[in-house]
Design a protein around this nucleic acid. Structure first.
Length: 255
DNA sequence: ATGGCTACTTCTAGTAGA
């Protein structure tokens, strides 16, 4: 079984690509999506189910929105962090094949002076509390999604250009480190990887062609799940297609 | 170099993404 995450930057635009990708990746049991940008009443549930999948989702108009598409039933779904009052839909938690999946679209933060930056840090605090509680209940757990954090300098194509800004600021990286301190591991870094591996490239300035990207989409795993994990890769293929998302899928193989 | 590119909504120009 494989689990995956993909920020699709509008499911309305990318649904055909998502269905094609699932068909091309038959071992993927569950795919977490971010930035669906669709309110629940217009979510393409019927199309996804007609293609043979289970789906759970929590969306809003224009911004954010998360979903899980799976080849197995999706159980015990929780939307957002209970008790954390958040009008934005950025978190979906569910169990698929006995694995607890937390699909996250962590806030971008915009810049260090923006109101969105303290929102990002508060959001990360709430996520950390939720992670801690879920880990106690579900030993086999993965946190998958768009973290909007490049954990290390090697995850940034040009650290001089990004240094001191959002996505790499010390408080954000400390929040990431605190996830690791809970016992989680960055599945991608658990294996040998090519240098300059990224999961996002700006649409502008031929960034993908120049591989001027960031690694901000991650799969963190609990010890019990990491023990079952044999690989973790970034799939750059969809970024080459017509009208791509600016993010690419990240896939982990289990068992 | 504050541009560049894409998606969205509806003051089709302005916001947001990262």
């Amino acid at each position: 079984m494989k689990i995956a995450t993909w920020n699709v930057n509008s499911l309305k635009v990318r649904l055909p690509q998502v269905l094609d990708w699932m068909a091309a990746n038959p071992e993927v049991t569950a795919l977490c999506l971010q930035e669906t940008k669709m309110d629940d009443p217009v979510f393409p549930q019927a199309e996804i189910e007609a293609a043979g999948y289970h789906v759970a989702f929590a969306g809003q108009k224009t911004y954010n929105g998360v979903a899980i598409i799976a080849r197995a039933p999706i159980e015990d779904v929780v939307i957002n962090v209970p008790g954390f009052d958040d009008p934005q839909k950025r978190l979906i938690t569910a169990t698929v094949n006995g694995v607890r999946l937390i699909g996250a679209y962590i806030p971008n933060g915009q810049d260090l002076e923006s109101d969105k930056y303290p929102y990002k840090l508060a959001w990360l605090e709430a996520l950390l509390q939720w992670l801690q509680a879920q880990l106690q209940q579900y030993p086999q757990l993965a946190l998958l999604g768009d973290y909007n954090i490049a954990p290390e300098d090697r995850d940034v194509h040009d650290i001089k250009k990004w240094a001191g800004g959002v996505l790499v600021s010390p408080p954000e990286r400390e929040a990431f480190a605190r996830m690791l301190a809970l016992g989680l591991s960055d599945a991608f870094r658990h294996f040998e990887q090519p240098e300059k591996s990224f999961s996002w490239w700006d649409y502008r300035g031929f960034s993908f062609k120049k591989n001027a990207g960031l690694r901000i989409d991650h799969i963190l795993m609990s010890p019990a799940l990491l023990a079952r994990c044999s690989s973790c890769v970034i799939d750059v293929e969809p970024r080459k297609h017509e009208r791509p998302s600016d993010h690419t899928p990240v896939i982990a193989t289990l068992d």
